[in-house]
Amino acid sequence: MEEDNLNEMKEMILKYVIKEYIDDDDTTITYETPLISSGYVDSFSMVSLLVFLENKFKIKIPPSKATPEAFDSVNNIVALVNQYLNK
């Protein structure tokens, strides 16, 4: 994947995470911020992220791969999406 595309994808996912999960302005989320293990996103709320990724990137992520670890940071999510984009 092109460097530019990758950055664009990271940015897009980060924006979605902030819009969907982060309410208060005090919190800064980066690509590395642990999302689930630090309590920003609870495991139930992952569903909407999953649906977002599948629709946006026209991929299908099997439930067994949609683990809290795989969703724990924007970087992890990008890696996960890439696995299925390249297939």
Partner: peptide, 16 residues
């Protein structure tokens, strides 16, 4: 939350 974990229905959340 525990009740939902025990249920096979899908779940999602909305901001408080």
């Amino acid at each position: 939350i525990d009740g939902m974990r025990l249920c096979s229905a899908q779940h999602d959340t909305f901001k408080h």
